[in-house]
Amino acid sequence: MSTLSEGFSTAFGLMAGFDARLLGIVGLSLRVSLTAVFFGSLIGLPLGASVAVGRFAGRAPVTVLLNAFIGLPAVVVGLLVYLLLSRAGPLGEFGLLFTPAAMVVAQTVLITPLIAAFTRQIVADAWREYREQLKSLGASAGRAAFTLLVDTRFSLVTVVLAAFGRAIAEVGAVMIVGGNIDGVTRVMTTTIALETSKGDLPLALALGIILVGIVIIVNAAAHATRQLAQRRYG
């Protein structure tokens, strides 16, 4: 049997068997990445919106930086967060290195620029359209940013989903700051890297197939919610 077909049959076997360890790993992956998406959105959405509507010096360079940081290499973010959280680093006393919290921090740093940059673009486009209207209503910049965020929420869902996709798929950062500790910081991607290292390519591929499946399910759920919400409140 080829590695590919073996990978698919292993994947089905694992899913059918509801392997407890696999469920733990999947659960941790989801918890870490969803938490990172939550904090990334909390920072990135208001940040992007204020850069879009705000009038302040240095707006252009901030925009350029946000756009550039969309492509931050995960391994560089991992290294930076590692140096920050390491006992020898400035935040060392909290002992966060090699914990899921460290992975959340790394993924949040990774995806916040992405959320902020796309939010800025979407809100800026809406701002061009509604600027006069909002101004005539006497809305402050903050009020305008908030209104436009609410107004463009359906487009922003796609942004948040992209951020989730990037978070759950990356391996470079979580490997460094989490340490891939069995039962503590081992997530889907680091497990796949480990099994590849062991030369167990069918198992690694099977885990990869499951990971893609999870991402599809999350996206489908978001799509369905969006459809429903659009029909009701659209």
């Binding site: 941790l28 918890r31 939550f38 904090f39 899921p100």
Partner: peptide
């Protein structure tokens, strides 16, 4: 609601405040 959600997510993470009976 947002703060409640944030707190729930953090508490739900194992290791964030796990007991100290482990070594690295």
């Amino acid at each position: 609601n947002l703060f409640g959600l944030a707190a729930a997510l953090l508490v739900g993470l194992p290791g964030a405040h796990a007991e100290d009976r482990f070594i690295t």
